[in-house]
Write a protein that binds this DNA or RNA. Structure first.
Length: 758
DNA sequence: GGGCCCTAAATTTTT
DNA sequence: TTTAGGGCCC
């Protein structure tokens, strides 16, 4: 220990060794931020801070887990295990469970995911307030409520805020304040919190219970926050409260990488940090160790188009590197196949593993073409985002059983499974129970138990069905506290009838559902073993599993087996990661930047920062591509290149062949408008098809050993070319070949199929 | 109450 | 293209 400090450059080291008083570390992309954070925690422990006294807040659970492991390697695992390290949401849900009584929640409170909360909001709009859910779109109402909560605007504050009311009124949405107020009531009655509540109630807890606040102020003697540029107001206040007494708070972030304002993140938290926390010392990490000079310069030239940021000068002393390559394609499908082929080429040439590649896109829905193409070429890949395991129907249903068994007031869970499997309890019966529940404040499950006592007007048959259901859940509730998670889950599967439901049919979908259930059981076993390993024998029940699972995302699902694979993810999800080669795809107008961002300059700049994040993921090679037509909702649409492509300084990019998107011809084509383009597109398509078939079917490669410099050769895809020089021999023999159409290429002869022409 | 068929909407990004 | 939800009939 100790020697690790010597691995740091002077500014990194200064940031690590800063202990007393607030500090702000402005960490450019690839500047060794993770290393600084890791060593900082190790250093603090060396200085006598116990792991229990260090609170380190990260952006994802995965980041926390990885950092814990890294720290463990420096300090020893026994010490690092006890650090308070995790996301705001996971750390404060833990604290809220411990202090639940103080704010009137059960310690087993459920965490509603956004699907739960959306469905509750929809229900309030439609059934309780009789509003039109086409006009009051649950999704956007949900977004407003979320932003309000993130700014600590409670329903009563919302209803008194003239500015907000005016805005809602002018958008003909005057009832949002009622929806919000009822929503909060319903959540509370259900003993449930949504994601935003975890932060909001933490603030309420600290505000209303100074003694509890003080307990945690005393406990956390040092506070670290990563990705500070993406914290919201609620998070800022929590940090300020906890750090108030001792001021030992270090925040790390990069204003150029702030990409989450849509969910309430305030760049101001970072910009104003020195003003809020007196005597803040600022450290700037400006040297990029990740990327080539060219990539860093290209990214800098892009971000310079934004206004308003911290002054910093990121630079790289790595190799100059290759220019960023821009390609255009006729369709999104061709884009998919070309990217897949490029990856396979680069692999064949040697020096790259599958895991050295990432394909980054703006929206999850773009992944399909790439998945298809990669599958066809037998390239292994892993995909993040989209429908995660825990969002699948059968898994959510099973989880709903777990939830209602641990928190009988969880009405959303109840509604999900009261008629699954079918029990003859349809919508009308359920709404009757729900109405009574809303009016009386009693949990739906309690009404199910004795519907007639609550004047719930159902017939005798239905009443019996309801009480039978309630008894089933009651039985689970008795056991859930004592039985290990895995065993309990099997009981639930069997006695609820889910198992029977699935065993009856054997179609393909059903088999995959069964597989998923099995995977869930495996996950429970793994969870139990993990807890046992840490000698946590008291925390192996479903209750404890639920506490963890609601805050997991599929990024955290990484089981370590998925090592050598190409990564597919959104640019947002790629934050904090790095790859040797990065393909940023779908660089089209109205896609990236998103069409919804063009009205507002600040959103437009955020999209640009997002593009900056994407480029700076690349260590060596960065490829940008756009398609001229793209399938959306089953229809082909004409697309124009993204204006962001022009924001990168010309000298750092290259468009191969003669199709530079910057040539006069292309600009003219873009300006011609869609009509003209559509005709051309058809022509281009046939041309394209012809070109792909240009290699005769009887193409026979020549013996690689007989190829020498100066020869004319033909490549199956690149066409005619001349061998400029040769290098190596036998298995590793390489040739530099200049192709008429594709330019200069470096090919490994073992793989490149070449035919000698002369 | 349950099953079938039709229509409309969805794709911004996530703890 | 896929999926959710509403209407209709048994």
């Amino acid at each position: 220990m100790g020697s690790y400090l010597e691995q740091l450059n002077p500014s990194q080291r200064a940031a690590v060794e800063h202990v007393e008083g607030p500090s702000l570390v402005i960490a450019g992309a690839g500047s060794g931020k993770t290393r600084v954070l890791t060593y900082k925690v190790a250093y603090l422990m060396e200085q006598g801070f116990s792991p229990y006294s260090i609170l380190a807040l990260t952006f994802t659970n995965k980041a926390a887990k990885e950092m814990k492991e890294r720290i463990g390697r420096v300090t020893g695992e026994h010490a690092s295990r006890h650090l308070w390290m995790g996301t705001f949401h996971s750390i404060f849900s833990r604290i809220l469970r411990a202090e639940a009584a103080a704010i009137g929640f059960p310690s087993t409170f459920t965490i509603y995911d956004s699907a739960d909360s959306k469905s509750l909001i929809n229900n309030i709009i439609k059934n309780e307030l009789n509003l039109d859910n086409k006009h009051y779109k649950p999704r956007s109402v949900q977004a407003r409520i979320s932003l309000a909560k993130n700014s600590l605007v409670t329903p009563s504050a919302y209803a008194q805020d003239e500015k907000i009311l005016m805005r809602d009124k002018s958008q003909r949405l005057p009832h949002i304040k009622e929806i919000y107020s009822i929503y909060v009531k319903r959540c509370k009655a259900a003993g449930a919190m949504d994601f935003d509540d975890l932060l909001l109630y933490t603030n309420i807890l600290f505000r209303d219970h100074p003694e509890i606040l003080q307990k945690y102020q005393d406990m956390f003697r040092f506070i670290l926050v990563d990705e500070y540029q993406d914290t919201n107001y609620a998070q800022f206040l929590i940090v300020r409260q906890l750090a108030k007494a001792h001021g030992r708070v270090a925040v790390v972030g990069d204003d150029a990488q702030s990409i989450y304002s849509f969910r309430g993140a305030r760049l101001d938290n970072m910009l104003q940090f020195p003003k809020i926390f007196e005597n803040t010392k600022i450290y700037k990490l400006e040297q990029n160790y990740r990327s080539t000079q060219n990539i860093v310069k290209a990214a800098n030239s892009l971000i310079a188009k934004n206004k308003g940021q911290f002054e910093k000068n990121t630079f790289s002393e790595n190799a100059p590197g290759d220019p960023i390559i821009i390609s255009n394609y006729y369709s999104d499908q061709e884009e998919g196949y070309s990217v897949a082929r490029s990856i396979s080429d680069l692999i064949m040439r040697g020096g790259n593993d599958y895991s050295d590649f990432a394909i980054l896109y703006r929206t999850n829905s773009q992944s399909r073409n790439f998945e298809e193409a990669l599958r066809k070429l037998n390239i292994p890949y892993k995909i993040y985002g989209g429908l995660s395991f825990y969002q699948r129907k059968e898994i959510k249903d099973l989880l709903a059983y777990f939830r209602i068994s641990s928190n009988s007031r969880d009405n959303e869970a109840l509604k999900r499974i009261i008629n699954f499997p079918k029990r003859g309890l349809g919508q009308s019966s359920v709404s009757k129970v729900e109405t009574v529940s809303n009016l009386s404040g009693e949990a739906m499950l309690d009404i199910c138990r004795k519907p007639l006592e609550f004047n719930c007007e159902v017939n005798a048959g239905t009443a019996k069905k309801l009480s039978t259901f309630a008894e089933l859940i009651d039985k689970f509730q008795e056991e859930i506290n004592t039985k290990p998670a895995h065993e309990m889950a099997e009981i639930i599967l069997k006695e609820s009838g889910i198992l029977k439901e699935f065993s009856d049919q054997n179609d393909i979908e059903n088999i995959s559902r069964k597989d998923n259930i099995q995977e869930m059981l495996n996950a429970l076993s793994i969870f139990e073993e993990g807890r046992k390993k840490e000698n946590d024998l008291d925390t192996v029940t479903l209750l404890h599993f639920l506490e963890e699972v609601s805050l997991l995302t599929d990024q955290d699902q990484d089981n370590g087996e998925d090592t050598n694979k190409v990564t597919l993810m959104t640019v947002h999800a790629s934050k904090g990661l790095e790859f040797k080669n990065v393909f940023i795809v779908g660089m089209e107008k109205e896609l990236f930047p998103s069409s919804q961002s063009v009205e507002s300059p600040s959103q437009y700049e955020e999209e640009r920062r997002l593009f900056y994040v994407a480029i700076t993921r690349a260590e060596e090679k960065c490829f940008l591509s756009y398609a001229k037509s793209r399938y959306q909702w089953g229809k082909a649409n004409i697309c124009a290149p993204s204006p962001f492509l022009r924001d990168i300084d010309n000298q750092y990019v290259r468009a191969p062949g003669d199709v530079s998107f910057r040539t006069k011809k292309t600009i003219q084509r873009e300006q011609n408008g869609p009509g003209n383009d559509a005709q051309k597109l058809a022509a281009l398509r046939t041309q394209q098809a012809r070109r792909q078939n240009s290699v005769s079917p009887d193409f026979k490669p020549s013996d690689p050993n007989s190829i020498t410099a100066g020869m004319q050769v033909e490549h199956a895809r690149f066409g005619m070319g001349k061998v400029l020089s040769m290098e190596g021999s036998g298995e590793s023999a390489k040739a530099v070949i200049f192709f008429q159409k594709e330019g200069q290429k470096n090919l490994l002869l073992k793989f490149a199929k070449l035919r000698i022409v002369q």
